Simulated scan of single mutants.
Amino acid sequence: MSIKVLIVDDSSFFRHQIKSIINSSPNLTVVGEAANGRDAIDKVVSLKPDVITMDYEMPLMDGITAVREIMRRQPTPILMFSSLTLQGARVTLDALDAGAVDFLPKSYEKASGNTEALRQALVEKLQTIARPSSLLRRGAPAAPRSPVARTTAARKYTQRFELVMIGTSTGGPVALQKVLTQLPANFPVPVLLIQHMPGSFTGAFAERLNSQCRIGVKEAEDGDIIKPGMAYLAPGGMQMMLTGKNKLKVLAGDARLNYKPSVDLTFGSAVKHYNKSALAIVLTGMGADGREGARLLKQAQNVIWAQEGSTCVIDGMPSAVVKANLADEVIPLPDIARRIINVVT
């Protein structure tokens, strides 16, 4: 059965281009279009789409207001289209807070020219976020748990932790916010954050987290000396590595790497400097980034946690770690901050 898509955008040109891309996929079907948020709400109720694409700037009702109302009336996975600007980043983060699941850059040039890259990204994201599990954080009924979505019992650790690293992708901005806002101002170790996100977004995301959290949060810079009570967010489009126990290197990295930033690369770079003293956590996200880095950390007797699958927007990344038997604990998102505090402080 095809996934039913509702397109919401005030540009008839963009709606037409996106509709053509979506209908070219055998697994997706456009069931309706809306030119503003108010019309979108009515069509969500009448058409009951499986997933929605949403613009932000529209007449009568903007995209963020529409997202909030849709999540209140009839929770449905929403993919935002966003401009790659600082203001676009802030708006997108607002939309994710309101309930949107993921986002794609909005480019009229790509939509009107060679659309293959846009088609692949759009189809993959729509097919992925249409799953029922993507609505769990908004209170929709839970999907049946997979064998790797189990919660494990809390363990006792004898080592002293000196570093926390958190890797995530789809659903990560909200998940990181839920974890980091619970950490105390006197948190005794540095935190490294690796979130799959465009370069124009990570500065705004670090700025937002810093305003919300009691610990400090900044976008990492080359040469940063990491300090307790501070979290360092890997810049989008770049790689973040540890070149010493407390020193960061930010670089363009190998073009062959699929992810910039890469969780695997940051995790792997810590192995040389941390033995038995690093805690690495893999949160919600598509794919398997983080698994191989976790494997290296595990070989150095560090500790690996994975977010419990039914509390993920997308459980690909944490499930990859669990299936590889690398996770020391599998923890629901609401419990992760408490567990971090218990074992680190």
Rank of each mutant, 00 (worst) to 15 (best):
A121S: 15
A153Q: 15
K43W: 02
L60Q: 15
I225N: 14
L192V: 10
A143W: 03
E109G: 10
V330C: 15
Q182M: 11
Y232E: 09
K249R: 14
R208D: 09
T181V: 13
R208G: 09
K298S: 07
N186S: 14
A231I: 10
I41C: 00
L28S: 09
S83G: 12
Q195I: 13
Q195F: 10
D55C: 04
I64C: 04
D9C: 00
T158F: 11
T76H: 01
P198E: 11
I3H: 05
L257I: 14
T151W: 02
A34D: 03
D97Q: 14
K4D: 09
L283M: 12
N114F: 01
Y108W: 07
Q74A: 12
T168H: 00
D50A: 09
I64Y: 02
Q120K: 15
L248D: 06
D328K: 03
D315R: 05
S211I: 05
V179L: 08
V303H: 10
V191Q: 03
P318D: 05
A100H: 04
R131N: 13
S112Y: 01
K227F: 04
I3W: 07
L193P: 02
K48A: 11
S11K: 08
L251M: 09
N275M: 13
F14G: 01
M71T: 13
D289W: 12
E221M: 12
A153H: 12
V101A: 10
G236E: 04
A149N: 12
K249S: 15
R15Q: 14
S146L: 14
D50P: 02
K4L: 07
Q195V: 11
D42W: 08
L265Q: 15
A121R: 15
I78L: 07
L209W: 06
Q127D: 11
K4M: 10
H196Q: 11
L193R: 06
A300T: 08
R338Y: 11
L192P: 05
S46V: 00
G293A: 08
G199N: 11
Y274A: 00
A231V: 05
P318G: 06
F187L: 10
S12I: 13
E219C: 04
Q212P: 04
A35Y: 13
V191D: 03
R119G: 07
V67R: 01
G229L: 04
V303W: 09
